[in-house]
């Protein structure tokens, strides 16, 4: 776990597509390169959407897990 190093947390639980990604994209702007952002989401498309967004923008998903319908992503700002 990288919890101690997380610079910011975003709770996107209950938000529909594309809001988890949109809020993530907004949140990541306020971080500096190398900072970690933790995102929680329940949107069923989140896993594929975060993978696609990461690939396209270069912000890396460094951790990913799922627990009872809640997805957790840790993203490193490019």
């Amino acid at each position: 776990m990288t919890t101690a190093l997380i610079a910011q947390k975003l709770d996107a639980r209950g938000l529909n597509c594309p809001m988890p990604i949109v809020k993530t994209a907004i949140a990541i702007k306020s971080l500096t390169a190398g900072d970690l952002l933790e995102v929680l989401a329940t949107d069923p498309g989140a896993v594929k959407d975060f993978a696609a967004w990461s690939k396209s923008t270069g912000n890396e998903v460094v951790e990913q897990s799922a627990d009872q319908g809640v997805y957790r992503f840790v993203i490193r700002r490019k």
Binding site: C17, P18, M19, I21, A25, W53, S56, T57
Partner: peptide
């Protein structure tokens, strides 16, 4: 939704 998704991708 399409607009916001594309904007999130830059």
């Amino acid at each position: 939704v399409l607009t916001a998704g594309a904007a999130a991708l830059g």
